[in-house]
Nucleic acid binder design. Structure first.
Ligand SMILES: [Mn+2]
Ligand SMILES: [Mn+2]
Ligand SMILES: [Zn+2]
Ligand SMILES: [Zn+2]
Lengths: 140, 140
DNA sequence: GACGCTATCGCCACAAGTTGCGATAGGCTC
DNA sequence: GAGCCTATCGCAACTTGTGGCGATAGCGTC
């Protein structure tokens, strides 16, 4: 379904603000924060409010154009919906991030589907834990 | 290690405020919010600030007395460290929560350990997805 | 029990979003 | 192209926490 069709069928409208937010997400490299998008949008249109950026990110997610994920506790990150999917492991000691291939996530999701009939999105929130380097070595 | 020992070895102190926050978490049934703890603490000691509650929850987590988890995007929840561990599945359509037995989490964590040497805590953040009831049925 | 070091406190400002409200402006109809 | 309906806008207040600062009070030592 095209963006036009999605707008039409959901009763949503395409405004200049929405266009600017969508372009900003599309042009970004990876996982951008709303703050970074707002900054980019305001570079040329300083009157656009932060709440407009937040509301448009939500609307664009409902339209299937962007997706949000969580790499840490506080900050939500956004990326275009057609980007390569992958999960994240985040170490609670050093903060280091590791990417997880979709195939590993899929096999974990299969177990939840078999046991609970639940269709899990394991890429939505980063998985926290302790990485190899930070694991405590037995004291000698 | 006892609470006394933990306090001693970390240089932390036991204040009336810290005691009240700890008791409030211990007396709560499940996953309480910081707001609920603050309310309970302020019932008898109204002068205690919200920031004191937040800082004490962090300190008590460092002491190993309480643990925080995330059941949704916005609110952090707290519980006593010695409570029965389990994961959560949260449906992004209906918001329903399902508990996951630790053994299922352990087998998922094993894969991440084998492939990445990462010691995952899969109970820290709820796993979002779509539950059995909310899955789209093929239109006839 | 008094003394001193400093962790913790209450207070305030700030950060990242969310929400209610009256004003504005998409987009469908004619 | 004008008119109408209402989605969306800018603004401001509110929510859930975080962080700096001077004042207070644990707790180890004497
Ligand atoms: Mn967390
Ligand atoms: Mn989310
Ligand atoms: Zn690490
Ligand atoms: Zn559901």
């Amino acid at each position: 379904m095209s963006l036009q069709d999605a707008l039409r069928s959901s009763g949503k409208r395409m405004t200049v603000q929405r266009r600017l937010v969508l372009d900003a997400v599309r042009q970004a490299r990876h996982h951008v924060t709303a703050e970074e998008i707002a900054k980019r949008v305001r570079a040329k249109h300083p009157q656009i409010d932060a709440s407009t950026v937040y509301r448009n990110l939500q609307a664009l997610e409902e339209l299937g154009e962007v997706i949000h994920t969580h790499l840490d506790d506080r900050i939500t990150r956004w990326h275009r919906a057609d980007s390569h999917p992958h999960g994240h492991l985040v170490c609670r000691v050093c903060g280091g991030e590791t990417e997880v291939r979709p195939i590993a996530l899929a096999s974990m999701a299969k177990r939840l589907h078999d046991e609970h009939g639940f269709d899990a999105d394991l890429a939505h929130s980063a998985i926290v834990g302790i990485c190899r380097q930070c694991r405590v070595v037995p004291s000698s």
